[in-house]
Write a protein that binds this DNA or RNA. Sequence first.
DNA 1: ATACGTAATGGTAACTATTACTAGTTAATG
DNA 2: CATTAACTAGTAATAGTTACCATTACGTAT
Lengths: 150, 150
Amino acid sequence: MSGYLRETSQRRVILEELGKLTSHPTANEIYEIVRMRLPRISLGTVYRNLELLSESGLIQKLEMAGKQKRFDGTIENHYHIRCIRCGRVDDLKLPAMKSIDGTATIVSDYEVLWHKLEFGGLCPECSAQRSRKGKVEILEIKRNTIGRKD
Amino acid sequence: MSGYLRETSQRRVILEELGKLTSHPTANEIYEIVRMRLPRISLGTVYRNLELLSESGLIQKLEMAGKQKRFDGTIENHYHIRCIRCGRVDDLKLPAMKSIDGTATIVSDYEVLWHKLEFGGLCPECSAQRSRKGKVEILEIKRNTIGRKD
DNA sequence: ATACGTAATGGTAACTATTACTAGTTAATG
DNA sequence: CATTAACTAGTAATAGTTACCATTACGTAT
């Protein structure tokens, strides 16, 4: 009685297009892509389907710190890395740490159920750009503490 | 020339109140607390100061996956755990994994600069509540895959 | 002290990402 | 086919946060 997912053209195309991508598009990016095949699709439909598809385990929803959600056509468990400069997100070939939830349970009062591990850094392109034009302001913040002058 | 932080009463009170708390309040919670001492302070001022104070390293900004930002009066590096039921955030007594950024750099093309590790689970209160009333719906999602009935 | 430059403020509007609503449409089943 | 509940497009609403701007006030120099 809890309902099931029907196969609509909108849903199928979203799933197909997401499957083609190795990137980790945002809802809006998926919307733009799908719109080329279904020009009348609504953004809300894309959001709703991404939500339902991730709930049903057909795709993966990535909720990265302080950023908009991204979606991953693959289901297998893996960590991600985000470029702090251009914002692209890549998979990381690092095995999931299975025991760490148990460790966290031991050192806390919580019943730990999951963990999210996210890396930040510079992608090859941005890294190369950075060394070309010298140190970049991103990495250092030049504010002083209260009461001090610069 | 890059500017410095003046000591305003608003900024001082925000910092003081945040220092009193062991919780990890949201901007709005801080706003409500500070408002008891400075009734005319604006929410924008709170946001701006939390941003500047965290930039200057006097406080810590926690950007947890898919949730609103929270702020931490202590600077020391540590991981956090969030209750998936009531939303409270606690510190975790787990030493920061220092070598993992290097590991990630090796297995990727990125120049890895930092990582965020965040745990989810049930806090003692919610855990007790859960066992009292049996399994909770949060943990299982009962959607079926496309084309299948339930 | 007084004046000056600029950071900071309060109030509000704007913005972004996402969710909710609703009347009409359509896929799956008998 | 007929039924019905899931789904859709379009739009409004929401939450959290940032941007703007005229005015205020902090820190420094006179």
